[in-house]
Amino acid sequence: MSDVIVTHGLTKYYGEYCALDGLNLRIPQGTVYGLLGRNGAGKTTAIKMLLGISHPSYGCAEVLGEDAEELRPETRARIAYLAEGHPLYGWMTIGQAVKFTRSFYDRWNQKLLEQILDHFQLSPKRRIRRLSHGQRAQVALALAVATDPEVLILDDPTLGLDTVVRRDFLESLIQIIQRRGRTILFSSHILGDVERVADRIGILVDGVLRVDCPTDHFKESIRKVVLEFEGKPPELPFCPRLVSSRQVGSKLEVVVVGLNGEQRQLFDSLRPRCTEEIEFNLEDAFIEYTIGPRRGLPIFSTEEEVADV
């Protein structure tokens, strides 16, 4: 399967501040890739550079085999992009926005567009500035999908949507995904959304891609081990692939990546009264992973490999 999105050491500086640091990413065709990270982690910067809207300080990116900075209009027509906040021209009606957008594309699925607008109960006569944030997102999605894209890049598409609209939006997205194996890259803060949709995730921490693996692998790899002692817990010696550790009363809570025999042996050597291993859902795993000591986090790259940094 060919890679639809590839980046090589993609780096972005804003003055002295490094927003994205050497991003190396490969997204194969048909993958639904969730790009996660806290505010300011570099998700939007990365996405904008993939579309040539922002320019890298170092490194390069390719989308559909073309340099992202020099995307030809024909290639751009194969990529749909939903920018953060769903910017559309407020003075336009939905019908005018459709007409304006459609004029740029040779390939346009009007039937699908009408189905989506109908599903969301959006009349073409409604003015965009009078739509709610959720409805605007729905219009943006309809416009993006009507171009029949091979790649969908969505920058925090569910940001600001209420639970019901978000669910509906995601259901639609899932239906769209199921059509002809499209490649989707989307960033999000809402881990539940990512868990439902993404096959693979990447986590950016302070501009560095710390995780790039299947969603399930990430969830399964992060474990919290709670060691309970008779009295005050001892100091934790050097532990490979440690994310964080903290003392809570007589308990020592340790979060590690890829819990294995070596780590279990280390924990046993502390002679705890009892040991409990806790699994996380994606949200908890993400929180535990990203609140850890930022630069020293273990990096996930593939299912087999977990490296210490």
Partner: peptide, 14 residues
């Protein structure tokens, strides 16, 4: 101000 540059510049035109 409207934040529409990303929308406009992503249209398939140079």
């Amino acid at each position: 101000v409207r934040g529409t540059y990303p929308f406009l510049l992503h249209r398939p035109a140079s």
